[in-house]
Structures are given as structure tokens and as C-alpha cells.
Amino acid sequence: ITFYEDRAFQGRSYETTTDCPNLQPYFSRCNSIRVESGCWMLYERPNYQGQQYLLRRGEYPDYQQWMGLSDSIRSC
């Protein structure tokens, strides 16, 4: 899974293949995501807390595409 700070896969990015309890050191906001394979559970707060979103393989050019309430993703 790759997270992008800006919409349409622009700006600083961070890629991971494992669970991350705290994504804050890698980016300040998340406006687009690419899921290369599988399913990922994302959380608005660190340590798997807050609103959660299940994303399947695909491209999400805007946080509203995954029904996000904000551009805050802090763990996965």
C-alpha cells in the first residue's frame, strides 16, 4: 500500500507492506492511496484507534473515494 500526502497520487509518499501502528512520522496528511494487493484496514488515529476504513486492491485518488471523513490516516 502506498500513501500520498496530496490528491491524485501527488506529493510525498510512503509505501509499506506490513502493519504500522503509527504513520505520523512518514506523512502529515493522506489524500490518496494505491493498494497494490489484498485488503487493508486503515485507522484515523495511531495504534489502530478511531474511524476505520477497509480498502481493497485499487486506486483511491481522493480520501472521499474511500468514504474518508478527513485526510487523517494514522495507522494501518
Rank of each mutant, 00 (worst) to 15 (best):
Y14M: 15
E36G: 09
S70G: 10
Q65V: 09
T18R: 04
C20F: 03
E15C: 06
Y53T: 05
E15T: 12
G11P: 01
R57L: 08
Y53G: 05
R45T: 11
G38M: 05
F27G: 04
D19T: 05
T2E: 02
Q49N: 08
Q24A: 06
T17G: 11
G58L: 01
L69F: 15
Q10I: 03
S75R: 02
C39K: 08
Y53F: 10
P25R: 15
I73V: 14
R74D: 15
D19Y: 04
S28E: 14
S37M: 09
Q64P: 10
Y48G: 06
T16Q: 12
V35M: 01
G11N: 15
T16P: 02
Y26V: 13
G38P: 06
N47W: 07
P21A: 09
F9V: 01
D62N: 08
R12G: 12
Y26P: 08
Y48A: 03
W66C: 04
W40V: 14
Y26H: 07
F3M: 07
D71C: 10
M41R: 10
E59S: 13
R56T: 14
L69I: 03
I73A: 13
C20G: 08
S13R: 12
T16D: 03
Q64R: 08
M41L: 08
T17Q: 13
T17V: 10
G58K: 04
I73D: 00
G38R: 04
G58E: 03
Q24R: 11
I73M: 15
M41G: 08
I73K: 01
P61F: 09
Q65E: 13
Q49D: 09
P61C: 07
E5K: 04
R74Q: 11
G38L: 04
L55E: 01
Y4I: 02
D19W: 13
I33M: 15
S28L: 07
Y48E: 02
S32I: 01
D6A: 06
A8P: 03
R57I: 08
E5W: 03
Q24Y: 11
L42C: 09
N22C: 05
I33P: 01
M41A: 07
L54K: 13
D71Q: 05
L69K: 06
Y26C: 13
R57Y: 03
R34C: 06
Q65F: 03
I33C: 14
I33K: 01
G38W: 02
S70V: 14
T2G: 03
D71W: 10
L69R: 10
S75I: 04
E44I: 10
Q49M: 05
C76A: 13
Y26I: 15
S70I: 14
R12H: 10
S70P: 14
E44V: 05
L55T: 03
L55Q: 02
G68V: 11
Y63I: 09
M67S: 08
D62G: 10
S70T: 07
G58R: 04
P25A: 11
Y53Q: 06
T2S: 06
I33T: 02
R34H: 04
S70R: 07
R29W: 08
I73G: 03
D19G: 06
L23Q: 00
T16M: 14
E15D: 07
F3K: 00
I1V: 09
T18A: 14
G68S: 12
S28T: 11
R74G: 12
E5N: 04
E15S: 11
S28P: 06
